[in-house]
Amino acid sequence: MQGYNFAYLDETTKRMIRRAILKAVAIPGHQVPFASREMPLPYGWGTGGIQLTASLIGADDVLKVIDQGADDTTNAISIRSFFARTAGVRTTTHTDAATLIQTRHRIPEIPLRDDQIIVYQVPMPEPLYRLEPSRAVSRRMHAMADYGPMHVKLYEDITRFGRVAVSYDHPVVVNRRYLMSPSPIPAFDNPKLHRMPALQLFGAGREKRIYAVPPHTDVVSLDFEDRPFNPIRAPHRCALCGAEHSYLDEMVIDDRGGRMFACSDTDYCASYQAREA
């Protein structure tokens, strides 16, 4: 695009971000501060993920962007077209054809490979922020591995509601050390974080943090031995493809309470339909 560098960001900024990525990979789950730039998309709309993607993407990459699991949600379209415009790279909706996947709120259903990178958009990188609003204090808590309060919260949930009342952004412990927000993915997706062959990068633009889960790293969802982590999905089949184990969107189809359930991962749904046909 005229007047702008390849993939929008200037090369100095990209190098700065890559250094933060390297540090993040070296300390799995630890939030690395970085000098987040203003992007032409608003904060909270994926600026962290976009900066990661911009600093990683090369001319040969094939980019997939999803939001809520779907390639054709408005913000996914907007980000994909941003890179098509500023980097001229190929884009795809097929998970297995992508080298780089930027996502908001979901992990694709099919397992990712070690030649892929997944970039998560993160609104609130600090998993402790509801318990401790001061980042100066929460950083100390990470340094001291003072994670008891997080378990106390789970204890309270079970005591009050009979189960853990966190259904998305369920905190995880990475590599037996750092407590980490997996970004607001449904708890259903948490198990996919564990020992994933692909490199997982998390970018929070407004909060100016980058963190990472290197390939094949242990990622454990917080729970109790006798109340194991137990994510739930809508107990239905996908109305479009018939898949039984995918994460489903619920759609209201009439004003008499009629509901339809369909895969949130649109690429998975389409290929499942093709396979079954």
Binding site: G148, H151, V152, Y155, E156, T159, E225, D226
Partner: peptide, 20 residues
């Protein structure tokens, strides 16, 4: 936090992971 949660806090901070 409930009385029980307050008492349990130090147990959890030092690694207790069995709710019951």
């Amino acid at each position: 936090i409930s009385a029980g949660g307050n008492i349990g806090a130090r147990l959890m901070a030092s690694g207790a992971r069995n709710y019951d």
